[in-house]
Amino acid sequence: MRKLFLLITTLGLIMATGCNKPSESTNTAGSGGGKKLTIAFMPKSKGNQYFITCKNGAVKAAADLGIDLLFDGPTNTDPAKQNEIVENWITLGVDVIAVACENKEGISTALRKAQAKGIKVITFDSDSMPDARSFFVNQATATGIANVLMDTAAQLCGGEGEFAIITATLTANNMNEWRKNIDLRLKEKYPKMKLVETKPCDDQKDKAQQETANLLGAYPNLKCVMAICSPAVPGAAEAVKQAGKVGKVKVLGLGLPSENRAYVKDGVTQAVILWKVEDLGYLTIAAATALAKGELKPGATTFKAGKLGEIQLQGSDIVLGQPFVFTKENIDQFDF
């Protein structure tokens, strides 16, 4: 009986703490009143160099613009975690939520809840459903990235031959968007090229290296490896180098210059494609601040983003600029 009592007290306690204080305001920060704005900033995952670079830009923007920045994100691949963090931010009472979305449909439910509570929502890096946010800070669209990747690959291969893709996990949402668009571009423009296989590397460099080594052996005519998650680019390059196929098998991918510099200089990796990641973080916070202050409204065509100057809008997309192709010639100019 005592156990039952304990059980009921436990549950009762949980309910009591909740139900006795329903009147407390959930959005104490408010947007007016000269209070410091709180902007919550979420990467797809923590512990990833790409998003750490993004965060560095966001921190600089927060200092420039005088806002409070919250940084939180999933530490594993649990697809529900982003929703949970957004829902926590809603009850925490923040002014703007900025998210790089892992699950397009899934996260939108949580973001709509935030909007219903009067919290402004902005997405960056990869978008939610359009109705779940005000603006999308677009470093490059899925189509844009896919096209640059596919076009560069085709150019490296001379427009014909076999190629393979290394991705993070088979379930990663935005990479699947890119793969779909790569497929479209492939069918439309490069009928002589053939995608032989797509392999996951679990976001680990060593696994990418092993998968690439296997692909090189299994497909002797392979002409190009396309790595679409950042740890996979140096992994693929190392495998090509160790197989003694430098130059014969081209390597390209989406990655950070710092992780690929040596390979690009040695001619193992022909092209690394990326945008100015730090600027992406900076621009996101600048846009979020302008949105909260009412300086950026739907329908605007430009807005002033701190040190980045005037930024153009296309519809509800805030465009950072085109993806950048790092090659032997220019890679030394970038240090992220």
Partner: peptide, 16 residues
């Protein structure tokens, strides 16, 4: 034995 096989160390190596 793992890190000597490539010129970079990935801190996420060892997952799984």
């Amino acid at each position: 034995m793992n890190i000597v096989q490539s010129p970079q160390v990935d801190p996420n190596a060892g997952g799984g």
